[in-house]
Computed example of a mutant assay.
Amino acid sequence: MKHFVPVLLLILSCSLAKAQANDSIVFPDNSYKKWALVTGIGQWDHTFAELGMAYLQSNGDRCAFGSLYHGTALTVDYNPFDNRAGLHASGWMNNAFGIILGGDINTYTDFHSYNLGFKPFIGLDWEGRVSFTYGYNFRVVNAGISDINRHVISLNYRFTLKKSR
Rank of each mutant, 00 (worst) to 15 (best):
N59H: 10
F27V: 03
G42D: 14
H112M: 09
G135D: 06
D29H: 04
P6V: 04
N137G: 04
F97R: 05
N149I: 02
L9P: 00
W44D: 13
S58A: 13
D77H: 10
T133Q: 04
G52R: 05
L51E: 05
H112S: 14
A96R: 12
Y55M: 08
N22R: 11
L8W: 06
I41A: 14
M53E: 05
G52E: 08
S67P: 01
D61Q: 03
N156A: 10
G66K: 04
H112P: 01
L16V: 14
I41G: 15
A17P: 06
H70R: 15
S13R: 10
V26Q: 13
K33G: 12
I148V: 15
A85C: 02
L37Q: 11
I148H: 05
K33A: 11
P6Q: 02
A54V: 04
Y108S: 08
F27M: 13
I153F: 14
Q57K: 11
T72R: 15
Y78K: 08
A64R: 11
F48Q: 04
K33C: 02
A143V: 00
F48H: 10
I148R: 03
M93T: 13
T47Y: 01
I105A: 15
G52W: 08
L10F: 13
D125L: 02
R150Y: 15
S67W: 03
T39E: 09
V76H: 12
G117Y: 07
F118Q: 05
I145P: 01
N83W: 06
L87S: 05
P120V: 05
D110W: 00
N149T: 01
F27L: 15
T133F: 00
W44R: 03
Y136K: 02
L12F: 10
R129Q: 14
E50F: 08
F111R: 10
V7T: 10
W126N: 07
V140A: 15
T133Y: 00
W44S: 15
A19D: 14
F27W: 12
D147E: 11
R158Y: 04
F81Y: 11
F48T: 03
F159I: 07
R139Q: 11
A96K: 11
S58W: 05
A54F: 08
N106A: 07
D23M: 08
S113Y: 05
G102A: 09
R84S: 00
S146F: 04
S131A: 13
H46G: 00
F132H: 02
A73L: 07
C14M: 13
S31A: 12
G135K: 03
L9C: 10
N137A: 04
K33P: 00
R84D: 02
R62Q: 13
G66D: 12
E50Y: 12
D45V: 02
H112F: 06
N142W: 02
S67R: 11
M53P: 06
G123D: 02
G135E: 08
H70L: 06
K33R: 14
G86V: 05
D23C: 04
G60M: 06
F111C: 03
A19G: 15
L51S: 10
N94A: 07
T39Q: 11
E127Y: 10
F27Y: 14
D110G: 01
S58D: 05
H70D: 12
D29S: 09
M93R: 10
V140D: 07
S131F: 00
V7P: 00
N59P: 01
I148M: 04
S154H: 06
T133N: 05
W126I: 09
R150N: 14
A73Q: 10
T39I: 07
S164A: 09
G135P: 06
N106S: 09
